[in-house]
């Protein structure tokens, strides 16, 4: 599994199926949530932003968690694919965190009365975004691939403490942001006709992440293994 050519072969074979499936799940979840789920008794329709906001915030945090795990693998075992994962996942994590921040701000304006406050939840999420940006910046400033991988791994391991802090910030401190509506461990504090579309959106977001990631990984593998015979063979046969 850990060998780049093997992964490349399977990713190329599965993606034409996997990407449309991911998109379908996402679209079904969003259409259900935005078009058909009931409106909220207090907020009206603006709560529908939750169908984008919550899944992207979940993704933003769990991608960082995955990067910390692959970062450790990269540091301990020096696995090639783990480093490629870091480089491919960081821009996606940044994208999802950015979507969470923007959608939260757009929701906050009409409901809270402000785009932004420096409370613990919002500030820690902004730090998460900067961690991603830092990792992306590291890669673009270090030419040596191995050194870049190790530096990025180190940042992911060091920074991963931000994830439990984001998660727990609404319980530990007084914040404007409300506690979690959606959690795996406790029953949801919304009715099932809102919860199911949200669940589908979360699943759809994970699928979309996997297909986006595999696309990026393919590019990363081709660029890094450019001088190997298998890449040359692949390019010459396929063009």
């Amino acid at each position: 599994m850990g060998s780049p050519p093997f992964f490349f072969k399977w990713a190329s074979r599965l993606l034409p199926w996997f990407s449309p499936i991911s998109f379908s799940i996402l679209i079904i979840g969003l259409i259900w949530g935005v078009g058909f789920a009931p409106s909220d008794y207090k907020q009206g329709d603006v709560y529908r932003i939750i169908f984008v906001h919550v899944p992207s915030a979940i993704l933003g945090q769990s991608i960082y968690l995955m990067m910390a795990i692959f970062g450790s693998i990269c540091l301990i075992w020096r696995a090639k694919l783990a480093g490629m994962f870091l480089r491919s996942a960081a821009p996606l994590g940044a994208s999802f965190t950015l979507i969470a921040l923007i959608s939260g701000a757009v929701w906050g304006k009409p409901t809270w009365g402000t785009w932004w406050v420096w409370d613990a939840r919002l500030t820690s999420t902004l730090i998460l975004f900067f961690l991603y940006v830092g990792i992306i910046g590291l890669y673009s400033s270090i030419d040596n691939k191995q050194k870049g991988d190790r530096a990025a791994s180190l940042i992911s391991v060091v920074g991963v403490i931000i994830v439990p802090i984001i998660k727990k910030s609404v319980d530990w401190w007084q914040t404007l942001h409300q506690p979690s509506t959606f959690s795996i461990t406790s029953s949801p504090s919304m009715t099932s006709d809102m919860y199911f579309p949200l669940l589908i959106c979360v699943i759809g977001f994970y699928f979309i992440f996997v297909s986006l990631l595999c696309n990026r990984l393919r590019v990363e593998i081709l660029t890094r293994e450019r001088n190997t015979t298998w890449v040359k063979e692949y390019l010459n046969n396929k063009v």
Partner: peptide, 18 residues
């Protein structure tokens, strides 16, 4: 000079709230 509304984590349709 600034009032922000805090929202709780509960979401439900109007009929359920009623």
């Amino acid at each position: 000079h600034e009032v922000l509304a805090k929202h709780d984590e509960n979401y439900m349709p109007p009929e359920v709230a009623k």
